[in-house]
């Protein structure tokens, strides 16, 4: 059922989807969307590749093997933004710059620590989605080969039984 059409469209869709995810992430503080949604969108981009091409093909994408580690990178980033203020004598989750101060900005994106926290959330969700789906897919592949092996062994046993 994996036709050429599927393959072509999946390949074409990969980069734009990631771009949309990036957009949702960056514009999160001004428009609908945030790190969580962006993470899910990016994970869905890879899920599409996984469904169409299978885990073997997916592994050939650059850096894909390291995506599951993003969960822990993201957790560390979020923990840092949460707890560093407490080292400096402020309460947890005191974001910088403080309320009312102006922050460096790029378009609608303001560079504030809350955005860093959101990036952490993005990484966690993205890594979770890709990691879980790809390890399910790999397990499925392993299961199928072992089933085939069992079937082959049974067939061989049957033959041996016939000869004796």
């Amino acid at each position: 059922m994996t036709t050429e059409l599927y393959k072509v469209s999946a390949r074409i869709l990969l980069l734009p989807t990631l771009l949309v995810a990036l957009g949702v992430m960056v514009k999160g503080y001004a428009d609908p969307g945030d790190g969580f949604s962006a993470g899910v969108i990016a994970a869905l981009a890879f899920a599409l590749q996984l469904m169409v091409f299978g885990p073997g093909e997916l592994d050939r994408l650059p850096l894909i093997r390291y995506v599951p580690y993003a969960v822990f990178l993201g957790l560390i980033i979020s923990l840092l933004t949460a707890f560093v203020p407490s080292v400096m004598g402020q309460t947890l989750f005191t974001h910088w710059p403080p309320a009312g101060d102006s922050a460096p900005r790029f378009g609608t994106l303001e560079f504030i620590t809350a955005v860093a926290f959101d990036v952490g959330v993005f990484l966690i969700v993205f890594g979770f989605g890709v990691g879980v789906l790809s390890s399910f897919a790999r397990a499925e592949g392993r299961m199928r080969t072992s089933e085939e092996r069992v079937a082959r062994a049974r067939a061989a046993e049957g033959e041996a039984g016939n000869t004796t």
């Binding site: 503080y29 001004a30 428009d31 969307g33 710059p97 309320a99 009312g100 922050a103 809350a114």
Partner: peptide, 10 residues
């Protein structure tokens, strides 16, 4: 004040 426009994200 929290440098945001999207309440849910903030």
């Amino acid at each position: 004040l929290a440098h945001g426009y999207d309440i849910v994200t903030v």
